[in-house]
Design a protein around this nucleic acid. Structure first.
Length: 215
DNA sequence: ATCCCGAGGG
DNA sequence: CCCTCTGGAT
Protein backbone atom coordinates (compact mmCIF):
# COMPACT_ATOMS: atom_id res chain seq x y z
CA UNK A 1 0.00 0.00 0.00
CA UNK A 2 1.18 3.52 -0.80
CA UNK A 3 1.84 5.82 2.14
CA UNK A 4 -0.21 8.99 2.63
CA UNK A 5 2.67 11.01 1.16
CA UNK A 6 2.97 8.75 -1.88
CA UNK A 7 -0.78 9.00 -2.51
CA UNK A 8 -0.62 12.78 -2.39
CA UNK A 9 2.38 12.75 -4.71
CA UNK A 10 0.51 10.55 -7.19
CA UNK A 11 -2.45 12.93 -7.21
CA UNK A 12 -0.09 15.87 -7.79
CA UNK A 13 1.50 14.11 -10.76
CA UNK A 14 -1.95 13.43 -12.21
CA UNK A 15 -2.60 17.16 -11.87
CA UNK A 16 0.38 17.92 -14.09
CA UNK A 17 -1.23 15.96 -16.92
CA UNK A 18 -4.73 17.25 -16.22
CA UNK A 19 -4.29 20.67 -14.59
CA UNK A 20 -7.92 21.73 -14.56
CA UNK A 21 -9.83 18.49 -14.56
CA UNK A 22 -13.50 19.12 -13.89
CA UNK A 23 -16.90 17.58 -14.61
CA UNK A 24 -17.48 17.17 -18.32
CA UNK A 25 -21.24 16.85 -17.89
CA UNK A 26 -22.95 19.95 -19.28
CA UNK A 27 -25.86 21.43 -17.30
CA UNK A 28 -27.21 24.91 -16.60
CA UNK A 29 -28.79 24.33 -13.16
CA UNK A 30 -28.27 22.16 -10.10
CA UNK A 31 -31.41 20.23 -10.99
CA UNK A 32 -30.23 19.53 -14.52
CA UNK A 33 -26.79 18.57 -13.25
CA UNK A 34 -28.38 16.04 -10.90
CA UNK A 35 -30.32 14.57 -13.83
CA UNK A 36 -27.12 14.35 -15.89
CA UNK A 37 -25.26 12.53 -13.12
CA UNK A 38 -28.11 10.01 -12.71
CA UNK A 39 -28.04 9.39 -16.46
CA UNK A 40 -24.26 8.93 -16.50
CA UNK A 41 -24.36 5.62 -14.62
CA UNK A 42 -22.47 3.01 -16.68
CA UNK A 43 -22.56 5.48 -19.56
CA UNK A 44 -20.02 7.94 -20.96
CA UNK A 45 -20.71 11.58 -20.16
CA UNK A 46 -20.26 12.33 -23.85
CA UNK A 47 -23.31 10.20 -24.60
CA UNK A 48 -25.27 12.05 -21.88
CA UNK A 49 -24.25 15.46 -23.22
CA UNK A 50 -25.64 14.59 -26.65
CA UNK A 51 -29.19 14.07 -25.42
CA UNK A 52 -29.36 16.37 -22.40
CA UNK A 53 -29.95 19.71 -24.21
CA UNK A 54 -33.29 18.54 -25.59
CA UNK A 55 -34.25 16.86 -22.31
CA UNK A 56 -33.43 19.98 -20.30
CA UNK A 57 -35.23 22.26 -22.74
CA UNK A 58 -38.33 20.07 -22.56
CA UNK A 59 -38.26 19.84 -18.75
CA UNK A 60 -36.77 23.01 -17.33
CA UNK A 61 -37.75 22.53 -13.68
CA UNK A 62 -38.59 19.69 -11.27
CA UNK A 63 -42.23 20.81 -11.49
CA UNK A 64 -42.32 20.21 -15.24
CA UNK A 65 -40.51 16.84 -15.10
CA UNK A 66 -42.70 15.71 -12.21
CA UNK A 67 -45.72 15.95 -14.54
CA UNK A 68 -43.99 14.18 -17.43
CA UNK A 69 -44.96 10.91 -19.06
CA UNK A 70 -42.22 8.33 -18.36
CA UNK A 71 -42.59 6.97 -21.89
CA UNK A 72 -41.81 10.41 -23.33
CA UNK A 73 -38.68 10.65 -21.19
CA UNK A 74 -37.64 7.16 -22.31
CA UNK A 75 -37.86 8.28 -25.92
CA UNK A 76 -35.67 11.30 -25.20
CA UNK A 77 -32.92 9.28 -23.49
CA UNK A 78 -33.15 6.08 -25.53
CA UNK A 79 -29.57 6.40 -26.81
CA UNK A 80 -27.95 5.70 -23.43
CA UNK A 81 -27.63 2.43 -21.54
CA UNK A 82 -30.13 1.46 -18.82
CA UNK A 83 -32.54 4.05 -20.24
CA UNK A 84 -35.75 2.43 -18.98
CA UNK A 85 -34.68 2.48 -15.35
CA UNK A 86 -33.16 5.92 -15.71
CA UNK A 87 -36.33 7.44 -17.20
CA UNK A 88 -38.33 6.17 -14.22
CA UNK A 89 -35.70 7.51 -11.80
CA UNK A 90 -35.64 10.95 -13.43
CA UNK A 91 -39.39 11.46 -13.16
CA UNK A 92 -39.65 9.95 -9.65
CA UNK A 93 -36.69 12.05 -8.57
CA UNK A 94 -38.34 15.25 -9.82
CA UNK A 95 -41.57 14.29 -8.05
CA UNK A 96 -39.79 13.81 -4.74
CA UNK A 97 -37.85 17.07 -5.08
CA UNK A 98 -41.20 18.80 -5.54
CA UNK A 99 -43.03 16.96 -2.75
CA UNK A 100 -40.29 16.80 -0.11
CA UNK A 101 -37.85 19.62 -0.93
CA UNK A 102 -39.97 22.50 -2.30
CA UNK A 103 -38.56 22.05 -5.79
CA UNK A 104 -34.96 22.64 -4.70
CA UNK A 105 -32.15 20.07 -4.96
CA UNK A 106 -31.16 19.18 -1.36
CA UNK A 107 -27.54 19.53 -0.25
CA UNK A 108 -26.97 16.81 2.36
CA UNK A 109 -25.85 13.32 1.41
CA UNK A 110 -28.71 11.79 3.37
CA UNK A 111 -31.34 13.87 1.58
CA UNK A 112 -29.75 13.37 -1.83
CA UNK A 113 -29.61 9.59 -1.31
CA UNK A 114 -33.31 9.56 -0.45
CA UNK A 115 -34.00 10.47 -4.10
CA UNK A 116 -34.80 7.64 -6.55
CA UNK A 117 -31.76 6.68 -8.62
CA UNK A 118 -29.36 8.56 -6.36
CA UNK A 119 -26.81 6.45 -4.48
CA UNK A 120 -23.67 7.45 -2.66
CA UNK A 121 -21.60 8.11 -5.79
CA UNK A 122 -24.20 10.38 -7.41
CA UNK A 123 -24.79 12.20 -4.11
CA UNK A 124 -21.06 12.82 -3.68
CA UNK A 125 -20.72 14.21 -7.21
CA UNK A 126 -23.63 16.63 -6.74
CA UNK A 127 -22.42 17.73 -3.30
CA UNK A 128 -18.98 18.53 -4.70
CA UNK A 129 -19.95 20.09 -8.03
CA UNK A 130 -23.10 22.02 -7.07
CA UNK A 131 -22.41 22.94 -3.47
CA UNK A 132 -18.63 22.77 -3.07
CA UNK A 133 -18.91 20.22 -0.26
CA UNK A 134 -15.69 18.13 -0.12
CA UNK A 135 -16.32 14.53 -1.18
CA UNK A 136 -14.62 11.76 -3.14
CA UNK A 137 -17.15 10.05 -5.38
CA UNK A 138 -15.98 6.51 -6.06
CA UNK A 139 -16.89 5.26 -9.52
CA UNK A 140 -15.44 2.68 -11.86
CA UNK A 141 -12.41 4.88 -12.68
CA UNK A 142 -11.55 5.81 -9.09
CA UNK A 143 -11.93 2.17 -8.08
CA UNK A 144 -9.61 0.91 -10.82
CA UNK A 145 -6.96 3.65 -10.49
CA UNK A 146 -6.75 3.57 -6.70
CA UNK A 147 -6.50 -0.22 -6.67
CA UNK A 148 -3.87 -0.44 -9.39
CA UNK A 149 -1.75 2.16 -7.58
CA UNK A 150 -2.29 0.32 -4.28
CA UNK A 151 -3.80 3.38 -2.63
CA UNK A 152 -6.43 1.03 -1.23
CA UNK A 153 -6.76 -2.69 -0.51
CA UNK A 154 -7.48 -4.89 -3.51
CA UNK A 155 -10.68 -6.23 -1.97
CA UNK A 156 -12.04 -2.87 -0.78
CA UNK A 157 -15.64 -2.01 -1.69
CA UNK A 158 -16.64 1.50 -2.79
CA UNK A 159 -17.38 2.70 0.73
CA UNK A 160 -14.04 1.42 2.03
CA UNK A 161 -12.27 3.05 -0.92
CA UNK A 162 -13.92 6.39 -0.21
CA UNK A 163 -13.03 6.23 3.49
CA UNK A 164 -9.43 5.21 2.80
CA UNK A 165 -8.86 7.98 0.25
CA UNK A 166 -10.43 10.60 2.53
CA UNK A 167 -8.13 9.48 5.32
CA UNK A 168 -5.00 9.55 3.16
CA UNK A 169 -5.63 12.83 1.32
CA UNK A 170 -6.15 16.31 2.78
CA UNK A 171 -9.75 17.51 2.58
CA UNK A 172 -8.64 20.55 0.57
CA UNK A 173 -7.84 18.38 -2.45
CA UNK A 174 -10.64 15.79 -2.26
CA UNK A 175 -12.64 17.30 -5.10
CA UNK A 176 -9.60 17.86 -7.33
CA UNK A 177 -8.32 14.35 -6.57
CA UNK A 178 -11.67 12.91 -7.62
CA UNK A 179 -11.58 14.57 -11.02
CA UNK A 180 -7.91 13.84 -11.56
CA UNK A 181 -8.47 10.12 -10.97
CA UNK A 182 -11.45 10.21 -13.35
CA UNK A 183 -9.34 11.75 -16.12
CA UNK A 184 -6.45 9.43 -15.28
CA UNK A 185 -8.79 6.48 -15.66
CA UNK A 186 -10.19 7.77 -18.92
CA UNK A 187 -7.04 8.72 -20.76
CA UNK A 188 -4.01 7.09 -19.06
CA UNK A 189 -5.05 4.19 -16.85
CA UNK A 190 -7.84 2.78 -18.99
CA UNK A 191 -9.62 -0.42 -17.99
CA UNK A 192 -8.61 -2.48 -20.99
CA UNK A 193 -5.30 -1.19 -22.30
CA UNK A 194 -3.64 1.15 -19.80
CA UNK A 195 -0.67 3.10 -21.16
CA UNK A 196 1.81 1.84 -18.58
CA UNK A 197 4.96 2.18 -20.70
CA UNK A 198 4.56 5.96 -20.97
CA UNK A 199 2.98 6.47 -17.54
CA UNK A 200 4.47 9.15 -15.25
CA UNK A 201 3.37 7.04 -12.27
CA UNK A 202 4.99 3.79 -13.40
CA UNK A 203 7.76 3.94 -10.81
CA UNK A 204 5.29 3.97 -7.93
CA UNK A 205 2.66 1.69 -9.52
CA UNK A 206 2.74 -1.97 -8.53
CA UNK A 207 0.21 -2.99 -11.15
CA UNK A 208 1.94 -1.00 -13.89
CA UNK A 209 5.30 -2.58 -13.16
CA UNK A 210 3.69 -6.00 -13.11
CA UNK A 211 2.10 -5.37 -16.51
CA UNK A 212 5.28 -3.99 -18.10
CA UNK A 213 7.26 -6.92 -16.72
CA UNK A 214 4.73 -9.34 -18.12
CA UNK A 215 4.63 -7.64 -21.52
C1' DA B 1 -26.01 -11.68 -6.50
C1' DT B 2 -28.61 -10.14 -10.36
C1' DC B 3 -30.77 -7.09 -13.51
C1' DC B 4 -30.80 -3.07 -16.51
C1' DC B 5 -28.65 -1.65 -21.68
C1' DG B 6 -27.22 1.60 -26.03
C1' DA B 7 -23.11 3.36 -28.20
C1' DG B 8 -18.31 3.59 -29.03
C1' DG B 9 -13.62 1.61 -29.03
C1' DG B 10 -10.24 -2.04 -29.78
C1' DC C 1 -16.86 -9.81 -31.85
C1' DC C 2 -16.08 -8.44 -26.73
C1' DC C 3 -15.39 -4.89 -23.26
C1' DT C 4 -16.37 -0.64 -21.08
C1' DC C 5 -18.73 3.55 -19.74
C1' DT C 6 -18.34 8.86 -13.38
C1' DG C 7 -24.33 2.80 -10.55
C1' DG C 8 -28.45 1.88 -8.23
C1' DA C 9 -32.43 -0.90 -6.91
C1' DT C 10 -34.28 -5.31 -5.88
Amino acid sequence: MLSDEECLKAIEIMGESFPNAHSSLVADTDFHFLLAVIMSAQTTDKAVNILSPKLFETYKTPYELAEANVADVMTLIKTIGLYRNKAKYLVACAQKIVSDFHGVVPQSRKELMSLPGVGRKTADVVMAECFGIPAIAVDTHVTRVSKRLRMVAQDADVLKIEQTLMKKLPKSIWIAAHFRMIYWGRYQCMARSPKCESCPLLKMCAEGKRRVEKG
